[in-house]
Amino acid sequence: MKPVAFEYHSPHSLDEALATLARVAPLEGRVIAGGQSLVPAMAFRLVRPGHLVDINGIAGLDHLRVEADELVIGACVRHAIFHRPVVAGVLGRALTDIAAHVAHYPIRMRGTFCGSLAQADPASEWCLLAMTLGARMIVRSVRGERSIPAHAFFQGVMSTDIQPDELLTEVRIPLPHAQARIGFDEFSRRRGDFALAMALVQFDLLDGRMKAVRVGVGAVEATARRIEAAEQTLEGGMPTMDRFQAAARAAAQAVDPSDQPQVPAVYRRELVESCVRRALERALSATLPKLP
């Protein structure tokens, strides 16, 4: 299939892009960055934008830097940049671990981190990261700028709080504490395919005990979310395999997976249990990357 005809706009500045977007938003206008999810959806005519506003030609949207206590990721930062650690410590390692699961190599060369969040696929690794670590999404329009916390940003399957005239300009991820550990695990049937389940965990290891525990699960429900029951099982405890297993079981019981012929709910619960346990084990294994 071929996409329906659309008008193409290639603004050279953010202001120009926002003005164009404001004008074409009522005419089924859409932003295109990497386009690695949008273009296939257009090819199948699942989406039929009348206008595409291409933000690839805007200088200064590919910023990636640490500002105060946040990692700031600009709208045009590609997945592939995370093949190598972009920040020291556990967050850099986690981003590298996760990036290896995002689609395939050529897709990672073109697709963007922020585009994944705007797309809000239930199986998106970056959406799980944003939810679990409590990222903030910065959106701009000619009306002004908004900062949206992750829990308010994701509203359902491929649905976010971004309004049609708004552009997601950057994502801000809080930097973990020096004592923090982060671990990720994912299961999919084929390499690079959509995940059937995944888990991301973060905790501070203080005097041998886990504090400020975050356990996130993705690809199982409409949006990724933190699992309070699993977090409470771990909070304040020592990181033992028994406790990890108990938390994993709690997560598996807490989720509400859809029941599909190819992927029965009971199977997905078992995957959640495995992913949470492995993510916790990964968090505990301490080798950290050196920055080049």
Binding site: P106, I107, R110
Partner: peptide, 22 residues
Amino acid sequence: HGVCGACTVIVDGDPMRACLMF
């Protein structure tokens, strides 16, 4: 639609799906 990779070309040094780019 970007799954098979048959249309892979090199754009500015990086491999990309030519079906996922206008």
